[in-house]
Design a binder for these strands. Structure first.
Length: 275
DNA sequence: CTTTAACCCTGGAGGC
DNA sequence: TGCCTCCAGGGTTAAA
């Protein structure tokens, strides 16, 4: 479920609930995630005040005085504040308790992770999982030249280069397809052969696609984060191509195609998008 | 160095 | 109803 817009919406939700407040406890119901949740973590952060809730790529960073909790939602994770007395659901793996609120991590597939980075190990940006991430799409430095330079010398397809996340983060499997449609670039185009002019369109398309999703996701996810018990509110995504195989392109009515690249589905319009 | 494929895990949908 | 196969928004890791 979580692409960058949903992660950012989640971050805003927990920021409003947690920042400036003291953690009264952390309960781990299931520690077997992508990596085991450190056993010592609850004792390390209990009683500390949350200084900030940040985001890097699809990682949520909860900062304390002695270090940072890194949270990734994987494919099926969600993190929300629950009502007082709300029953624990299956796959609710972790709870962070505050005097006035409880945050719960729910993740059926357990591809997500909860890790600890002690302050003495250096700045969080140098954490191995964050160090090689590409630029944030809303960083002013992310422009056509940056993208073009990043793609230079890479033989893989543009779709896979976007998905790799080491040039620019944020365009996951849905929005990589959607952004390429918006930029009218064929997903199989060799990354190194995307011209500077097309990089201008693509950088813009990525930002616009994510902005649109964030705006619609922000409204639907507001009650997701503050859920009153109703689980699983989704994005009201108005996809141009994603999961629209065989349906008419919204621009030219040509049937949308589905292909597989790197074991992931890609959708595109064979008429609008050129190699 | 870059690129590819296997893998981690559960659940929903659809065919029979 | 059950059992099977396929598919899913993520990313790390080992192998080529």
């Amino acid at each position: 479920m979580p692409e960058l817009p949903e992660v950012e919406t989640t971050r805003r939700g927990i920021d409003a609930v947690a920042t400036g407040h003291t953690l009264t406890g952390m309960v781990v119901h299931e520690s077997r995630m992508r990596w085991p949740i450190p056993k010592a973590l609850p004792d390390l952060i209990k009683g500390q005040t949350v200084r900030a809730c940040l985001r890097r790529g699809k990682y949520i960073l909860i900062e304390f005085d002695t270090g940072t909790v890194l949270i990734h939602l994987g494919m099926s994770g969600s993190l929300r504040s629950v009502m007082q007395g709300e029953l624990l659901r299956k796959h609710d793996h972790v709870e962070w308790l505050f005097k006035h609120a409880t945050l719960r991590l729910h993740d059926p597939r357990r591809f997500g992770s909860v890790l600890w980075h002690p302050r003495e190990q250096g700045p969080i940006e140098q954490h191995p999982l964050l160090a090689k991430l590409g630029i944030e799409p809303f960083d002013p430095a992310f422009n056509a030249k940056y993208l073009h330079d990043g793609l230079a010398g890479r033989s893989m397809s543009i779709k896979q280069a976007l998905l790799a996340g080491d040039i620019v983060v944020g365009a996951g499997n849905i929005y990589a397809s959607e952004s390429l449609f918006r930029a009218r670039i064929h997903p199989k185009t060799k990354a190194s052969r995307v011209s500077l002019a097309r990089c201008t369109r693509l950088a813009l398309a990525i930002r616009e696609t994510l902005t649109d999703a964030l705006e619609s996701g922000g409204s639907t996810l507001r009650d997701y984060v503050n859920a009153t018990g109703e689980p699983g509110a989704y994005f009201t995504l108005h996809a141009a191509v994603y999961e629209r195989e065989g349906q008419p392109c919204r621009v030219c009515a040509t049937p949308i195609k589905r292909i597989v690249q790197g074991q992931r589905a890609t959708y595109f319009c064979p008429s609008c998008q050129k190699v």
